[in-house]
């Protein structure tokens, strides 16, 4: 199971998720699908139309910048980070 670390501002929207979620997934896109299944609506908060990552969010797998296609291993750590976006 990969471990996903969620940002505080996302946990505020889905308190039941807590800050740390374990998922069985093979790619980052897969991770988001599993998160959305467990916490309905979370996918819409992370992805824009056309299943693109929202433009002010960053993904890391094992501390390397990642995309939705990046592979995820059984012991990977996936982080979703809100970028600085002003305002």
């Amino acid at each position: 199971m990969a471990t996903v670390l969620l940002p505080r501002t996302l946990v505020e929207l889905f308190p039941a998720a807590g800050g740390r979620v374990d998922v069985d997934a093979r790619s980052v896109g897969d991770v988001i699908e599993r998160l959305d299944a467990a916490y309905p609506g979370m996918g819409d908060r992370l992805l824009d139309a056309g299943s693109r990552l929202r433009r002010h969010l960053l993904l890391f797998v094992d501390q390397e910048r990642a995309t939705l296609d990046t592979a995820v291993g059984p012991r990977s750590e996936v982080r979703i980070i809100p970028a600085l976006s002003g305002g």
Partner: peptide
């Protein structure tokens, strides 16, 4: 939200607790 996009929120207790969706 700059990070999480647009959503409609609703509250049945006059604004104390909220749910949200953009499905």
């Amino acid at each position: 939200s700059n990070w999480y996009g647009p959503a409609v929120w609703w509250s049945d207790d006059l604004g104390e607790t909220w749910a949200h969706s953009s499905h």
